[in-house]
Design a protein around this nucleic acid. Sequence first.
DNA 1: CCAAAAGTGTTCCTAGTACACCCATGT
DNA 2: ACATGGGTGTACTAGGAACACTTTTGG
Lengths: 228, 228
Amino acid sequence: MSVPRLAVSVDLVVLTVREQRLCALRWRRDRPPYEGAWSLPGGFIQLDEDLPVAASRLMAERAGLADVRIHLEQLATYGYPDRDPRQRVVSVAYLGLAPDLPASSRAQVLWTAVDDLLQEEAAFDHRRILCDGMERARAKLEYTSLAAAFCPPEFTVAELRRVYEIVWGTSLDPRNFHRKVTGADRFLIPTDRTTTRDGGRPARLYRRGDAEQLRPPMLRPRPTERPN
Amino acid sequence: MSVPRLAVSVDLVVLTVREQRLCALRWRRDRPPYEGAWSLPGGFIQLDEDLPVAASRLMAERAGLADVRIHLEQLATYGYPDRDPRQRVVSVAYLGLAPDLPASSRAQVLWTAVDDLLQEEAAFDHRRILCDGMERARAKLEYTSLAAAFCPPEFTVAELRRVYEIVWGTSLDPRNFHRKVTGADRFLIPTDRTTTRDGGRPARLYRRGDAEQLRPPMLRPRPTERPN
DNA sequence: CCAAAAGTGTTCCTAGTACACCCATGT
DNA sequence: ACATGGGTGTACTAGGAACACTTTTGG
């Protein structure tokens, strides 16, 4: 029995928060198929390369984010036969969460607000992959300390709260949020510095702690189920 | 630039609860590599086949579970270069949750308690995949209604509780558990039948409701963090 | 009658929600 | 002085934990 062989790619959903919006890295397609549409940055894996290694390499080569500490995790694998019109490609998607970084050095990739991106035509099934990545990020904010991956090394509680509010599209009570995150064990490490970059009374700066889980979880306000 | 092509397989972590233990389907390897070790049932995908379709096909062909309603979801993808000594294989693992079924018709596959399986030598990285599948199942019991996937069509609250206890390896208060699951919206649909198969006072039989999420979640008792 | 398991009531306590209020800075 | 955002206190409430107690069967 012969074993079919096919191309395996890695596609990257890279999210950040900038200018009060949730943004993703888009790749500008300048040749068919889907010329003019956007796609996710990605590429084919090499024969001697592990999947996370390929994701890191492509993060540098295609997303222009070399030497940057970014949270990277596997998202899901997409493989229905016609997803690429040229050939059968199975794609392993990775999710990356980044702080607000300068735009990439490559002209072909740029940060775009996901709301805008979803209005435009997407190449392949990349709209679906982007949506899955956003949903994963939203869900993980609830029960992990991943929100800090969107922040610079030192940040205030209010900046962290804005991450939650923007990613979830909700508003949170600043006072209860403050109590919750400063009370969570090993989530935030206080520094002795403060900042007034957001105006008002100086806010204490924190660094990310080593807790991975957030227990009890941060509850995302649900759209109240139809009361009827 | 040439695109490397490689073999893509689907491996199945199929879990059930039988005889008070968490069991998985094992494949008995009767030829190298890893002759004598166990592996997960699986096989290569076809060129014209979507991933979930391949998983269903292999569930029938290799796991011997055709025509059975089983919850199937994608688990993760494993692809480091030397995981199969014969050739480079990227494997997409699927997680299946089944009620207590008769043993497969194939002699090569059989249910084995996961505790025993983890004592034996595993082929490839299948021990790791099995562990990832168990962890996914444990986590999903917390916030979804998936536990019912381990039960027959009609079941009692105590049977459902035993699923939680066996999968989590903890014990739960029967009274609080009863209130929690019968109170959860659309989780359980009461029938008008009862059973005494577990002894004692007759227990009402329930069918699975259409709720997917369990809110608020069922809390898994955590090993109390070292009190030091 | 007794054992066993189902199911209910009640008490206590943790933690989420809402919001009044005070604090420390820039202008 | 006052606007702005940082941070604390507090009352209310939902829901988890623990467990006494009643119910309904089989033996």
